[in-house]
């Protein structure tokens, strides 16, 4: 196996972005190496979700400055589907329902898009069926989910498990989980987190966006970043989450403000 000499997967420098002319990201900096798990926490409206969507290339967000290098490539120059095919995966906070499109077809088309991008032959329906059945166990999903329309009539937990199934299938280099824990009961949370942990390996990296320390008991991060007002204002180890849980965000914000003032 050839290992990238720098082993930096993602490098974000001074990234700024707008929604409808309103600046949301005001200078994000982040470096993620292979094998690492990062958590991004922060109050509502601090730019966490926007950051994930900007990385994935959502058309509603305009990048106004900064750079993002993903595996040595200028990520911002790529179309959203090219970013996905080259290894960026975003697990959505609110996965959409797509009536009429079977989950199985959807997964196969997504998988083959990536194969094609890698110059590999597309997998036919029979081989794919076998492949996907192996992956179902990772998120403890029943095969009956495959014949249903994408997310249609799925419970909140089933939708999130379906997201992780897609991650398992597409084997991204960088997976960004946007509040994957929201709306999950404890059993579903365990299944989802267990799935993510199985997929985590020394070659890939995971960025978890969350409000709560709860998820981080199951997916243990190497770093925790706190966002406020469109930037990361503090970075620490996993113990930072416990402190945030106990004391809230105010003290971090104050400390940051003092830091700027002094």
């Amino acid at each position: 196996m050839i290992i990238d000499h720098s082993n930096v997967i993602l490098s974000v420098k001074n990234l700024t972005a707008n929604v409808d002319e309103t600046p949301i990201l005001k200078g994000m900096n982040l470096e993620v190496k292979a094998g690492e798990i990062h958590a991004i926490m922060g109050p509502n409206g601090s730019g966490k979700s926007t950051f994930s969507k900007v990385l994935a290339g959502h058309p509603a967000y305009q990048v106004t400055g900064g750079e993002v290098i993903f595996q040595g490539q200028d990520l911002l120059a790529l179309e959203p589907e090219e970013r996905a095919r080259s290894g960026i995966f975003l697990a959505f906070q609110y996965p959409l329902e797509i009536p009429g499109v079977s989950n199985l077809d959807f997964l196969r088309v997504a998988y083959n898009s990536k194969r094609k991008h890698q110059g590999l032959e597309e997998v036919d329906a029979f081989d794919f069926d076998e492949l996907i059945r192996e992956k179902l166990g990772i998120v403890k999903m029943d095969a009956s989910f495959l014949s249903r329309s994408v997310n249609e009539g799925f419970s909140g937990g089933e939708k999130k498990r379906n997201e992780i199934l897609q991650m398992a299938l597409l084997e991204p280099k960088l997976a960004i989980l946007d509040e994957t824990d929201s709306g999950l009961d404890i059993d579903a949370l365990r299944i989802v987190a267990g799935g993510v942990n199985q997929l985590s390996n020394p070659e890939n990296a995971i960025v978890v966006i969350t409000h709560y320390q709860r998820l981080l008991e199951y997916i243990v991060p190497d770093y925790i970043h706190v966002t406020a007002n469109g930037r990361i204002i503090r970075t620490g180890g996993k113990e930072l989450a416990l402190e945030l849980e106990e004391r809230g965000y105010d003290w971090v914000l104050e400390a940051a403000a003092t830091g700027v003032a002094s």
Partner: peptide
């Protein structure tokens, strides 16, 4: 709309294929 197409794009599927799949399904 934009969100549906972005969902497909994020899984590597082009807009043309996404629309075609959604319309065929519909």
């Amino acid at each position: 709309g934009e969100d549906q197409l972005f969902f497909f794009a994020q899984r590597g599927v082009s807009s043309e294929d996404a629309i075609s799949m959604m319309i065929s399904g519909f």
